[in-house]
Structure formats: structure tokens, C-alpha cells
């Protein structure tokens, strides 16, 4: 190896360093913004969750008091339990409803029209979640469209209790999540080569086997992505249970905002936010494990 090669090597590494610096400089504003207004505030939540409020005072000696209170007080524990139950129900229902919708669009509609159908199927996705929950109230309220129609038809005498309960909260959540999961599942399904199914059928697989052995495994990433986004959104949403759920039971986000607005107890709100993030992390790990388990 001669001197020229060494020089060329160092020139190359110098230009590579320059290239890396250029790339970093371009990415820096976005990275700094995310650090300053996302990572630091997240750290602040972790720190504040160790403080506690006594009367109007903020006690900044770190301790686990808020977490102990969470474990001791039934109302907090119940809030988490409600949130987990609602989130799991919503996720399962959303995937079960979104799959046939996405599958029908991906397999039963002509390819050049699929995009249009998909757009049509998820158009209400673009409604604000405040407006969407209010819209469901119009449908489910005691004097709302469903009860009004059923009563006019003479099918019921008294309005059914469709709103201000857990069922209404779940309906509102599922409505949004179905559209979200339809998008992610469709994205997986449309990439499946139809020849795979035909080949399996040639080799003697029946339709059920083609579905469970080919379609479902290849759609798994879309299902997992949709389920994860559904979980993040459902477990952290305050509006839907507040508008549709009535005051029969509280979910975690409602309890968190209660701490902020009514009790001005930011440390407790921070501790509850940490617990919410923990739940999302668990969901992420579970879904990631399910995916890698499937691939094997």
C-alpha cells in the first residue's frame, strides 16, 4: 500500500466526516426541537412525579408518595383498570371490523378503484375528535337519531340507554380506530402477491388455509401497527369518555385532568402520566413480541 492510497483513504474519511456534519446540520433543527419540547418535558414529567403537593406547597424532596397514593386509593386503581379494559375492547373490535373492510377493498375492488374506495371509507377520519364525539352523542342520546327512529317505528316505548355509559365511549373510540386500522391493514394486504395464494391453492391448500397461513401472517405488521396506534390514542384520550361516557366511571385521562384543573396537583398528574406511558410501553413490547413470534 503506497502513500497515495493512505492519502486517498484519509481524504475519503475527511469527506465522509464533512458529509456527516452536513447531514447532522440539516437534521439539527428538528432534533433540537424534539429534544427541547418533547424529550425535556418528558423528563420533567418523570421528575415532577417524584415531587408532591402539600396544601398549596410544592414539596421538591424526591419520593414515591404519588405512586404509593396510586396504589392505595381505589379511585386511581379503578381508573387504570377501566382504561385498560376499554382500550383492549376497542383495539380488538377495531381490528375485527377493520380487517374485513380493508380485505374487501384490497381483494374485491378493482385495483384502479381501490384508492378511491379507501378514501371514501376513511373520509370521516378527518373530523376533529371533539366534533366526532359530539356527533355520536347526536346519534346515541335518549332523544337522538337511533332512539327517535326506533320510537317512531314503535319498536320501543322508552329510549334505550345508549349514551353516557361505557358502551357509548367504546362506540366513539371504535369508530375512529376502525378507520385508522383500515388504513394500516390495507397497506399490508395490498402488498401481498396474489400469486402466493394461487400457488398455495395449487399445492392443495383450501381457502381457510390460504387465509390463516398466508394472508394473516403477511397482514400481521399492518394489524400490529393499527393496534398500537389505537392503543396510544385510546388510552390517552380525554374527550371521548368525557363527552360520551357521562360520569358513571372515570378513565385515566379524565383523572389526570381532574388533578390539573380541580386540584392543581401537577405532581400527581405527572405520576399518572408516567403510568399511562408505562402502559403504552407494555403494549408496544407485547405487539413487537407477537410480530417476531409470528415471523419465526
Amino acid at each position: 500500500m503506497g502513500v497515495t492510497a493512505v492519502m486517498a483513504g484519509s481524504a475519503e474519511s475527511a469527506s465522509r466526516g464533512r458529509d456527516a456534519r452536513k447531514g447532522l446540520a440539516l437534521a439539527a433543527p428538528a432534533l433540537l426541537w424534539t429534544l427541547a419540547f418533547f424529550a425535556l418535558p418528558s423528563g420533567a414529567i418523570a421528575v415532577w412525579s417524584l415531587f408532591r403537593r402539600e396544601g398549596a406547597e410544592l414539596v421538591t424532596t424526591p419520593g414515591l408518595d404519588n405512586y404509593r397514593r396510586f396504589l392505595d386509593q381505589e379511585s386511581f386503581r379503578l381508573g387504570l383498570l377501566n382504561s385498560v379494559e376499554v382500550t383492549l375492547t376497542v383495539t380488538v373490535l377495531a381490528v375485527l371490523l377493520a380487517f374485513p373492510l380493508a380485505h374487501a377493498i384490497a381483494t374485491r375492488i378493482r385495483p384502479e378503484r381501490q384508492r378511491l374506495w379507501l378514501m371514501a371509507a376513511v373520509l370521516p377520519f378527518w373530523t376533529s375528535y371533539v366534533v366526532r364525539s359530539y356527533a355520536w352523542l347526536l346519534v346515541l342520546a335518549p332523544e337522538g337519531v337511533v332512539n327517535g327512529t326506533l320510537m317512531t317505528l314503535g319498536l320501543i316505548e322508552e329510549p334505550l340507554a345508549l349514551s353516557f355509559n361505557r358502551g357509548a365511549t367504546i362506540t366513539g373510540f371504535v369508530h375512529f380506530s376502525v378507520m385508522l386500522c383500515t388504513l394500516t391493514i390495507y397497506a399490508s394486504l395490498v402488498r401481498i402477491d396474489p400469486k402466493l395464494g394461487l400457488a398455495a391453492a395449487d399445492l392443495g391448500a383450501n381457502r381457510w388455509q390460504v387465509f390463516t397461513r398466508i394472508t394473516l401472517p403477511l397482514a400481521a405488521p399492518g394489524i400490529a401497527a393499527g393496534a398500537f396506534l389505537t392503543i396510544v390514542i385510546t388510552i390517552g384520550d380525554y374527550i371521548t369518555p368525557q363527552i360520551l361516557g357521562g360520569n358513571t366511571e372515570l378513565l385515566m385521562p379524565q383523572i389526570i385532568l381532574l388533578q390539573i384543573n380541580r386540584r392543581a396537583d401537577i405532581p400527581m398528574a405527572a405520576a399518572l402520566s408516567m403510568i399511562l406511558m408505562l402502559m403504552v410501553t407494555i403494549a408496544y413490547l407485547a405487539l413487537a413480541r407477537w410480530l417476531t413470534g409470528r415471523r419465526r
Binding site: L31, F37, F38, I45, V232, D237, I256, M277, V280
Partner: peptide, 21 residues
């Protein structure tokens, strides 16, 4: 990963974090 990270955190938690900070 850092840039995508906020997608995995609920809006409520991001809001509480900014409120505290």
C-alpha cells in the same frame, strides 16, 4: 427513532409535559 418517538406518546402526556416544563 428520536424524531419518531412522539408518535408513541399520547397527546395528553405531551401536553402535560409541556405544561410542566
Amino acid at each position: 427513532g428520536l424524531l419518531f418517538m412522539p408518535l408513541a406518546v399520547s397527546y395528553l402526556v405531551i401536553g402535560v409535559g409541556l405544561l410542566v416544563a
